[in-house]
Design a binder for these strands. Structure first.
Lengths: 202, 202
DNA sequence: TCATATAGTAGCGATTCCAAACTATATTGA
DNA sequence: TCAATATAGTTTGGAATCGCTACTATATGA
């Protein structure tokens, strides 16, 4: 019984936070895009990565991104290493309105929880996410903090940077460690990667 | 920081649970309708109550309900006391497919949590819901267990039923106590329920 | 070099949702 | 009592969204 109540509360909370259509002229879907590109690291700020993250198609993702670029909320730059790929970054205009994100209602609600509870809460939610993601064959996004690809111990020694990602073979700066990444591999052994097969499917 | 992670996880969980379009021929929106009418008490099984619960318009709610009535998943009966009102009930056909509800993915994920965690989890989610609902002036749905309108102590004495609702002045049977109600009024301290510490309220 | 895979975009058709108008019944109060 | 107003529900029209399919361009690999 408790499990059902948990599930219903989770979806209900998600709904009422976005109930009122446009905020700052952006639709809930556009806010989701903005939020993703604000939180994703430089390897993951692409249309395809957003589509995978948001469980939608690349076409749908492309549309939403296009509208945000047209509004001046996202800036698009072609990748230097891969001519097909583009990277998207928030503009100052976008950063100026992130405080108005309707998600802030939920953030405020979480802030009102007793501090000791929040850690366990995050833990429980992450476990649920991992469970659902693996069951549905959805990609599992996460941050370096629990990623198997993270190398280094934070100590700068003999010219090496304190951290690096073993997957893309790139050094990382400290601020990047808690950005979400499409290449996330959960801490232990098994690594559910991007659903590589069927690139057109969602 | 934790608060933002919590908020993002909540909405993300809500999304990936419903990512794959139709299930059993029903859209995510239709599933939400069915789920509501399966969980709402007899005072709350109306289009308007669903619209309020789901933070949508009565027109939108009416459309979704009409489609489910046409499919034979909901049965519509006019109210005897109010000629304007209708009440909706799940048909056997609908009850037969509730196990296929895409929400079950989340229920399963919640079930995989350590038992001791679930109670606290429900508690935290409820607090967040209350916080958001009051801040956004959204109606707050809940069950009799924590409702200020609940009267009676569960003891049958001199012809009186064990419980009653003081708001609609109607007796209640035990099964109705954990159905969600549009007339919910928070304020009653959570009564330490009798046996299984798990089956808490909502 | 040719075949195949991947990144991204464009267009179409279906669906969904909101807002507003409308019908019917209840309620209020002068 | 009767008119004014409020409420329950439905209908309709238009806009927005989304997924599917097709398409271009680049990358990769045999």
């Amino acid at each position: 019984m408790d499990s059902r109540v948990i599930a219903e509360l989770v979806v209900h909370l998600g709904r009422i936070a976005f109930g009122d259509g446009l905020v700052e002229g952006l639709t809930p879907g556009q806010w989701a895009v903005l939020r993703y590109f604000a939180r994703a690291n430089r390897f993951s700020r692409t249309p395809s990565a957003f589509a995978a993250f948001h469980s939608t198609t690349r076409g749908t993702a492309s549309q939403a991104i296009k509208s945000l670029v047209a509004q001046g909320h996202l800036r698009q730059t072609r990748s230097e290493t891969d001519g097909r790929s583009v990277r998207l970054d928030l503009t100052d205009k976008a950063r100026a309105i992130t405080a108005k994100d309707p998600l802030e209602a939920l953030v405020g609600a979480a802030d009102a929880l007793p501090p000791g509870v929040r850690g366990h809460f995050v833990n429980a939610l992450q476990r649920m996410q991992g469970h659902v993601a693996s069951e549905k064959d959805k990609p599992f996004f996460g941050t370096c903090e629990t990623c198997d690809h993270l190398e280094g111990d934070g100590c700068c020694m003999e010219g090496l940077l304190p951290y690096a990602c073993g997957f893309v073979s790139e050094p990382l700066i400290a601020e990047e460690l808690n950005e979400i990444c499409i290449n996330f591999a959960p801490g232990k052994p098994a690594t559910p990667r991007i659903p590589d097969a069927g690139s057109a499917q969602r």
